[in-house]
Write a protein that binds this DNA or RNA. Structure first.
Length: 313
DNA sequence: CGTGTTTACCGCCATG
DNA sequence: ATCATGGCGGTAAACA
């Protein structure tokens, strides 16, 4: 069966948000006719649309979209300006109400949220825009540390290449895990990223090389059993707590306490998946004062307690 | 499950 | 004027 997938783009969209998922969809049909997708590109006014990198694509007007099985809203710097575009909003709203499967990549989540589709739903977006997103749409349960999230049939993914992970998951839903695994191998990407669903490792990679806080984060990772309060961190880089907090948030897109908690959660998760000791002892190793506190942090961040991670891994 | 306490965050403003 | 810095106080969240 051929499934029709429509990508929503606009001036300033991110090419990789489109081309990554499109490549994954294209690859599927190559062996297996039951995994065949037809891709259409849709923009508010149709015609040629320029991506943020300058490459242009030919699009249909969204009003002339064919019947669609899935809609994917692409992200990009343009998303922050056109999330009030009435044509896009109406298009997304109509298709959602009609039961079309809805998805977004990166800051495409801003479009879904603007259309009101994410109210009360768990969702994610590019980590750098997470704070802005939460401020703009406080009624969305943002899971800023997830690669992708599915809630109420709406799929959102983190920044850029996470769109490929998302598409693999969509393909797995339409077909099966094996098909999605084969496609991942063909594309030479991870079928399941190391580190599970967290994008924080990716964040460390992106921020560390250039950032002022590279050394600080590395140091913190090695001393997770210490308190690591904002005051201590600020002291460690010889800044006032106020200035440190502001500079850190600006630089990394995360507040200091959140970042430390992410580090703790990430290491804890690895230890738990690796079955290294009891949940209680893992909690202490990574600096949670108690297993109960760690458990709450897990639920807050991953949506599930440590126990269920150990069981499913 | 409520309740007092601590912590983090952020807006505002002063300083240099 | 602009920018980096940092102190203060309110608020919200997390903790005990």
């Amino acid at each position: 069966m051929k499934r029709s997938v429509g990508f929503v783009v606009y001036p300033g969209f991110q090419m990789l948000d489109l081309s990554g998922p499109a490549a994954a969809l294209e690859t599927g049909g190559r062996w297996d006719s039951s995994c065949d997708y037809e891709v259409s590109l849709l923009s508010p006014n149709g015609g040629m649309v320029k991506s943020s990198g300058g490459i242009q694509v030919e699009t249909l007007k969204i009003a002339q979209a064919p019947a669609l099985h899935t809609v994917i809203a692409c992200g990009g710097v343009g998303a922050l300006h056109c999330n009030e575009d009435a044509k896009i909003i109406r298009f997304l709203r109509d298709h959602h109400q009609a039961g079309t499967r809805m998805a977004s990549v990166c800051t495409g989540a801003f479009l879904l949220a603007a259309a009101g589709l994410l109210k009360g739903c768990r969702a994610t977006t590019h980590w750098r825009y997470a704070a802005q997103f939460q401020r703009t749409y406080p009624d969305v349960l943002l899971q800023s540390d997830s690669i992708w999230v599915q809630d109420q049939g709406i799929w959102t993914s983190a920044g850029v290449t996470a769109g490929i992970d998302l598409t693999l998951a969509l393909i797995a839903q339409d077909n099966d895990e094996d098909t999605s695994r084969l496609i991942a191998r063909e594309l030479v990407v991870y079928h399941r990223r190391p580190g599970g669903q967290t994008q924080f490792s990716a964040m460390l990679d992106l921020v560390s090389p250039t950032g002022k806080f590279a050394g600080l984060l590395d140091w913190a990772r090695l001393h997770l059993d210490q308190t690591l309060s904002v005051d201590e961190l600020a002291d460690h880089v010889a800044m006032s707590p106020r200035h440190f907090s502001r500079a850190f948030t600006e630089e990394t897109g995360q507040t200091p306490a959140k970042a430390v908690e992410q580090l703790r959660l990430e290491v804890a998760r690895e230890l738990i998946e690796g079955k290294a000791g009891s949940v209680e002892s893992v909690a202490r190793q990574v600096g949670f004062r108690s297993a109960d506190r760690m458990r709450r942090a897990f639920v807050r961040s991953f949506g599930v307690p440590p126990k269920s991670i150990r069981q499913t891994s």
